[in-house]
Simulated assay, not measured.
Amino acid sequence: MVNPKISHRPTLCYRPVQPSDLGILEQIHSDVFPIRYESEFFQNVVNGRDIVSWAAVDRSQPNGRTDELIGFVTARIVMTKDSEIADLLRYDSSKGDQTLVYILTLGVVDAYRNLGIATSLIHEVIKYASSIPVCRAVYLHVISYNNPAIHLYKKMSFKCIRRLHGFYLINGQHFDSSLFVYYVNGGRSPCSPLVLVTFFITCVKTGLKSVAAKLRKNEEKMVKWPKCKETRGLVPLQNKQTIKTELSGCEYV
């Protein structure tokens, strides 16, 4: 596919961000994001200090720019127990080494958008997270008005699990954020469909057992109606009892 904004058919490749990308990385962040990042952040990215990253380049770009950054994604590994979404995961606190991958920034040069570059970069992150046995999810924040990004993450099966009011402060104005999660290596929400179905079946089984027990108890209390020799009628020895079955409801959050 050729983007109308570029005059050639791109040959897209992906590699780690490296120190020589520093200048263009800073420039793209400045062009793409309304938030300004400290120089320390960029140094950490290009030198791989606690941050993993992938760069997109166009090998068929003219004028010797075949290794110039046209897109990127940066991410960081965080401990699940220390993350802001620990309560939104089916997290086993006894396994303190469980981790998550948090996407910090994702950007593509304007001329190269709508070519699937962002999707490929996110797939690199997901593949990386999946390769870590103790990693349970990839997650990120999206500002409320970034509809293309929201559409992209939903299309890639990310789940929006929380909306944070006033999360961003930009030029004195607050903006909401959506929190998206993609589960890997068996990670899932405490209220995932599998968990809810299992919980529902347990409730039904418990309820049926309770009803059966009460029916058996009632049968034991029941007394037969003996026939009266003189009248050949039925004489009740005790009043009938009404069985009440109480069903407890399940409340989901």
Rank of each mutant, 00 (worst) to 15 (best):
T231I: 11
A129K: 05
D82M: 00
M1F: 05
V184A: 02
S53R: 05
G186C: 11
S248K: 13
S93F: 08
V78C: 08
T105P: 05
G172D: 07
I35M: 08
D67N: 14
E219F: 09
V32A: 15
D97F: 10
D87F: 09
K127T: 04
R163P: 00
F167E: 08
L164Q: 12
Q43W: 12
F158D: 00
N146G: 04
R9V: 12
Y252F: 15
Q27S: 07
L100I: 09
T66C: 13
F175G: 02
S7E: 11
P19H: 08
K95H: 13
K227H: 13
D82W: 07
S178V: 00
V17F: 08
P190W: 11
R188E: 15
P34Q: 00
S210L: 12
R162V: 01
E38H: 09
L115C: 00
Q18C: 06
G172H: 04
D50F: 05
Y91C: 04
Q98I: 06
K205T: 11
P193Y: 01
V109Y: 01
F72G: 10
S177N: 08
F42C: 05
L22H: 06
N147V: 01
R113H: 02
L152Y: 07
F200Q: 11
C250N: 14
V134N: 11
I51K: 06
I132P: 01
L140M: 15
K244W: 10
Y112P: 00
C191H: 03
Y91I: 10
V235C: 12
A75Y: 01
G233Y: 08
V223Y: 11
V57S: 03
S144I: 05
V184F: 05
I243G: 02
N47S: 11
I201N: 11
I201G: 01
R216N: 04
A118W: 03
L115N: 01
V223C: 10
S157G: 07
D58N: 12
I51F: 02
W54L: 02
P10T: 07
K217Y: 05
M1I: 09
R9L: 13
F200P: 02
I77D: 01
S20K: 13
A86Q: 09
P19G: 03
Q238P: 10
C228Y: 07
R216W: 04
V138P: 02
C191Y: 14
E124I: 09
